[in-house]
Design a protein around this nucleic acid. Structure first.
Length: 275
DNA sequence: CTTGTGTCCTGTAGGC
DNA sequence: TGCCTACAGGACACAA
């Protein structure tokens, strides 16, 4: 569930707290959340490394460490990172990093689908292959309507499913894709290749603006999900959602928001605003 | 290559 | 009260 705006919010907050500190120790509480190399190897190899920078690429959070290492997190659906002082053990803590100065960073993941990886900088194992194949972020300068049009051309799959494909535009997930399609006035079920040029332009602009707004409001915290900022605060963008979570409610146009299923995921839209 | 489907994972909500 | 099932969904494996 953490999408680009949530991970970017986490990145900013972590950077202020972590950069310059050294990882004193790491404890993996549950081995299968380590995607690479292994729980034991990660614990041993991360020790003593200094956090040089905190970066983000798509939904991946990258802690750049001294000695040419990257500690990479993917929070998937329910993962989050929490800063603490070492006095308490949060519920669902799967990994803990103790830093110089007594701070701790807990990797909390109730569903255990999120992953942490420790790799040589730039050298990604097979389990991180998706990272190398990611498309441009909609907030990148190079993300033009020509770029988006090229990705959608001749594709028969629905625009909704392609927006979720990280090779098309990375960082977008279920919430922000629905909100962008609403703002662009495009139905999620439309075959991507059938979008007209002005629609693609509108969609590109909508993606950009909705992600920027998500960042500005520090992400989306929905009632039934667990996104929290590392210091514990909630996001605020849920107050600005137009369709997500509003099934059966009135759209500002007077129509009723609907929810449809795409395989395993749901998509919210207004059939009167979106065509 | 493209597209659709199943799988992972487990707390929570809702039904009976 | 308590058990059971469905659901949430990002990424990837896999089938057609």
């Amino acid at each position: 569930m953490p999408e680009l705006p949530e991970v970017e919010t986490i990145r900013t907050e972590l950077a202020g707290m972590l950069v310059g500190r050294t990882v004193r120790s790491a404890k993996i509480g549950r081995a299968d959340i380590v995607g690479f190399p292994s729980a034991r190897k990660l614990e041993l190899d991360v020790r003593g490394r200094r956090v040089v920078a905190v970066r983000r690429t798509g939904k991946y959070l990258v802690l750049q460490l001294s000695g040419n290492r990257e500690l990479i997190f993917h929070l998937r659906l329910s993962g989050h990172l929490e800063l603490g002082n070492g006095r308490t053990v949060p519920r669902f803590e799967r990994a803990r990093f103790v830093l110089s100065g007594g701070k701790t960073m807990s990797f909390i993941e109730p569903r255990a689908l999120g992953r942490v990886y420790l790799v040589r900088a730039g050298k990604h194992p097979r389990c991180l292959a998706g990272m190398a194949r990611m498309g441009l972020e909609p907030i990148a300068r190079e993300f033009t309507s020509e770029y988006l049009a090229g990705k959608l051309a001749d594709r028969k799959a629905s625009i909704k499913s392609l927006l979720l494909d990280q090779r098309v535009c990375c960082g977008v997930g279920n919430i922000y894709s629905d909100e962008a399609l609403f703002r662009a006035g495009i139905s999620p079920t439309r075959p991507a290749g059938k979008l007209a040029q002005p629609e693609v332009r509108r969609l590109g602009r909508a993606l950009r603006s909705v992600l920027r707004a998500g960042i500005r409001w520090c992400g989306t915290t929905l009632e039934d999900r667990r996104y929290r900022r590392p210091a514990g605060a909630q996001g605020e963008f849920q107050k600005h959602l137009k369709v997500v979570g509003r099934e059966g409610q009135r759209c500002s146009c007077g129509g009723t928001i609907e929810r449809i299923k795409f395989g395993n995921r749901s998509s919210y839209f207004c059939p009167r605003c979106q065509h």
